[in-house]
């Protein structure tokens, strides 16, 4: 038995188009490493260079948002179901300012820290 992972459209280029893939691990972090070994590049879309969970995705373990389960330390085990969704967010405020407002790091490479571009 393995851990079933549902992959959103935007990340299926890493899974050969597959909507559901399987992986293993004791924690979300371990699972992502295992997935990245089979689907190279996936990790970089889920985890920031600083090692945190990316703002652009939501990850759920058995329908719970992993941000409430210890994020990358969230425990996973065989038979669990993991769902990845693109986070839906945006707005008129510049990205860095929005990230600061939310108390989360801005990790988008196209946006320098402190930039407050609007529109």
């Amino acid at each position: 038995m393995a851990i079933e992972v549902r992959v959103p459209t935007i990340l299926r280029s890493y899974t050969g188009g597959a909507k559901v893939v399987e992986g293993s691990g004791d924690t979300l972090s371990g699972l992502i490493d295992d997935l990245d070994a089979k689907h190279s590049g996936l990790k970089g879309r889920l985890i920031t260079p600083e090692g945190g969970l990316h703002r652009f995705v939501n990850i759920y373990v058995n329908d719970e948002d992993v941000r409430f389960l210890g994020a990358l330390d969230a425990k996973v085990s065989d038979g669990d179901s993991v769902t990845i969704l693109p986070a839906v967010a945006g707005g008129a405020l510049g990205f860095a300012a929005a990230a600061a407002l939310l108390g989360r790091p801005s990790n988008h490479p196209a946006t320098a820290p402190g930039t407050t571009e609007g529109e």
Binding site: I10, F56, V57, G91, A92, A98, A110
Partner: peptide
């Protein structure tokens, strides 16, 4: 989504987050 004080054009934030290509 709505912009309440600016034009209806995607911001850099909107573009960064846009995760549904379809």
């Amino acid at each position: 989504h709505s912009h309440t004080a600016t034009e209806a054009y995607p911001s850099r934030t909107d573009i960064s987050f846009a995760g549904e290509p379809g």
